[in-house]
Structure formats: C-alpha cells, structure tokens
Design a protein around this nucleic acid. Sequence first.
DNA 1: ACCTGTGAAGATTTTCACAGCA
DNA 2: TGCTGTGAAAATCTTCACAGGT
Lengths: 245, 245
Amino acid sequence: MTKPPHAGSEGAAARLRSIPEASVARLAVYLRKLGELAEEGADTVSSDELAAATGVNPAKLRKDLSYIGSYGIRGVGYEVAALVHQLERTLGLNHRQAVALVGIGNLGHALAGYSGFGGRGFPVAALFDVDPDLVGIHINGILVEHIREIPRVCAERGVTIGMIATPAQGAQAVCDLLVDAGVRCILNFAPAVLQVPDEVEVRKVDLAVELQILAFHVARKHVAAAEQTGVVNGHPVNGAGRLVP
Amino acid sequence: MTKPPHAGSEGAAARLRSIPEASVARLAVYLRKLGELAEEGADTVSSDELAAATGVNPAKLRKDLSYIGSYGIRGVGYEVAALVHQLERTLGLNHRQAVALVGIGNLGHALAGYSGFGGRGFPVAALFDVDPDLVGIHINGILVEHIREIPRVCAERGVTIGMIATPAQGAQAVCDLLVDAGVRCILNFAPAVLQVPDEVEVRKVDLAVELQILAFHVARKHVAAAEQTGVVNGHPVNGAGRLVP
DNA sequence: ACCTGTGAAGATTTTCACAGCA
DNA sequence: TGCTGTGAAAATCTTCACAGGT
C-alpha cells in the first residue's frame, strides 16, 4: 500500500495533509449524499452507487476516499455511518465553525437567513455592515453591528470563517479587518480580487462570472447547432464551423 | 504560430471552439477588470499588470488570451477597448441572454433583486415558484408565475439561461421543465445533482460545500500552526504533525 | 462473484523560458 | 528594450484496468 502524497502514516495529520484540492470539493458532495442515504436507512453503499448519485466517475470517487483512509469493505462497499464520521472529521466538521457575514445588502440578507448554513454546522455568529440604517437591527435574531466592531466581536465569538458580501469597493478594507481579527478563511462574494497574506485562504463565489461562463456555452451550442443546419445568425457556415467568406 | 486545440483558422467558430474550460472562467474575470481600467481611462495594459490585478500568473493570462486570437502588441501590451470587445464576443455577451429564475425563496429573492445580473447583460426575464403566496406578486417589477407556465413564458421571452434556487427535492422536476422549454444552460443553486441530456450544460453553485471546503482548510491550518507550537487541541504532536501516541 | 484500493496511463492545466516583433 | 505569443517541461487531475481481499 503506497499512500500517494501522504508522508505520515495515520492519524489527524495524515488525513488532513495533501488531499488534492479537487478531491476536497467532492468529499463535501459525497458527505451530503451519504447523509441522505443514512436517513433512508442504508447501511452500506458501493462506489458505483454513490458515484452515480453524485455524478462522479466511480474510480475517481474511490481514489478520493482513499485519501482519507481505507474504510471500504471489498465485495461489499462502504459502511455509511462510518464513512460519514470519517468525512466529517476530515472536513473539520466535528468542530463548530462560527461564521461572520459582512455586508447585509441584497445578497447578504439572503445569506444571513440561509438555513443551509446553521443546519450544517456553520452558525452565523455575527453580522456587520456600515449602513446606519442596518446597524442595530436583528436578522434571524442576530444583531447587525458596525464593521469597526469586527476585531472585538470575532475574537469574542471565536469566528473562524468570514463571508464578504459587500460591494466591490469596500471588500478589501473589510478583508483586512477580518484578517487582523485572526480570521484565516474567507468566502468572498464581492466581485473583487482580495490581497491577503499567504496563510489566509480565500474562495470566491462570483455569480456574474458563472453566468458569463454559461453565456459562452450558449454561444458554443449555438454554433454547434448551426453546424447541423449550416447557418449561424443567418450566415452560412462550412462543415468546420467557420463562416463561409 | 501553432494554434493549440483549434482546428479552424479564424472567425466565430475558431474563437468559440475548444477554449479550455479553466481559461473561459478566467476570461470573465479579465473582462471585468478591463472594464474598470477602461473607465479609469487606460488605453493599454500589459499582461503583468492585468495578471497582478486579477491574481493570475502572467504567462497563464497570455495563454488564455491567445486562445481568442492575437490582439496584443509586443513591447506595449493589450489595447483595452479592443480586448474588451473581443472578450465580449467570445463570451457571447454581444447577444442578450434572458435569464429565468425558478424558486423565489430566501436565496431566490436575493438573486431576483441582484443588480449584478441585469447590469451585466443578463436581464432576469421571468420568475417562477409553486407557492400560491408568491405567484402573482412582483419583484423588481417582474411578475412571479407558476412553474407550469415555464414552457410558454420561456419560449415567449427567449430565455437561454435558467437558474434554479428551489429546495433540493424540487430541483430535478424544475430542471426537466426548463430543458423541455429549450433551455440549454442552467445555473443550479439547489444542493442536488441534476440529470440532464448531454446537450445541456449545468453549473452548480453550492454554498454549503464552499463553507465545508473552507472548514477543511481551517482544520489544516490548525494542524500547520500546531506543528510550530507542538500542540493540537491540547495534544502534543511530533514534527510530522502526527498526534504523539 | 463482487467491489475496493491503487499503480500506471492519459488528459488537462500550469508554469517556465525564450524566440520574435514593435 | 519591453512585452507578447508559444513550444516544451512540470504539475495536477482523471480514468483505466486489474490485483487482491471478503
């Protein structure tokens, strides 16, 4: 058994060390499906079943799971409850991760009320904005505070994850406040590139970019379809999809 | 000059054909920054400048741009206006892309009112839900209609992109309705894996998964920090980051 | 007989490094 | 000289295919 990127043999560090980034993203998806399977009373699941349910290649799934250890049973599959437990440990979900949300605009308001977070072990522990009309109100029972309170509040409530849902121009300043407050992981919804020290992890969710990627595919499909009909936007095309001069 | 994956030489199809998926995602990011630079009155920008502003390696940026053609000037950089134009063409932003949004819950409501879409060439042209309390109301001047109207409304308004923000259990049915209505590109916010025909493109935005990925990194940083101090959660660790037995 | 775990091959993406043009 | 465009190398990720348990 040659553990791939792992240097250590077992224990917390072996699980946490060098799991490919692409695999980590999928582990979270497997975990959700396994939760559903557990509710339905399934005891075991095979890699083929779980792969089909999550839209992943079965070999890829097995390799992903192999990074966290060998918890499968050959000839049978994976024990659902045990695998859920291991995935939760690996993803750090056995610790509570308090989240601070900065920017209570349109999107921020929705995020503050999104039940998918608290129910999944990510309680929104603090809300911040600069707008005097917002500071002081409660959303879902949580007080909106001024961003100048970020250092104190984040320290008091043990915030480990920050979410930024401000307009682009305020995002960097908010990010700096969070980093100064000791937050090392940030989910950024603002359409801005954040500068952070090496030890801080930023993930970006950019809705406009997602739509533009889809728009590209709309255009591509349009040309692909045209290759069947021989016409793009009223212009004839040849078999290679080129506009005929 | 050996055009990499391209088979054709120039024209619409050459731009649209086989740009690596990873590059397409970044093109949208470059485009936004270029828009800002244009507003600031910049005429040209070098790959190093644009790369720094978007957090990308300069060589990668140049390769990305090379997929859409050679619009740079050696020794100078890229003409901002021309590059914006080419990127918009490539990403299909010269056509209007009407968006239908299904599921007007917490998140859906925020998406319906998100100004980042309409302002970027993605007008929300239709809203749908099943809740009788929602059907009939207007959000930002757009009527919420029952999902049974999806086929008629999407056809009438030329919807090319669908966004699904329903609970998980309703997502597949909504997806099927959209696909039947001719929608070929879908942005899925529901925590469910959608089954679609090959010709339909689905992108998934999963907020809970994003947080779980960050949680993994919180845990990893925690161990990394412990290797400095020699302690994890009060347990001593050795130099390899393993818990000492 | 069945299904996991994983070497090895293949595909894709990133990065380097430099030729070549303005 | 300065910066683009791009082969080639390196790194990463995916898929195949089968050895090896149960």
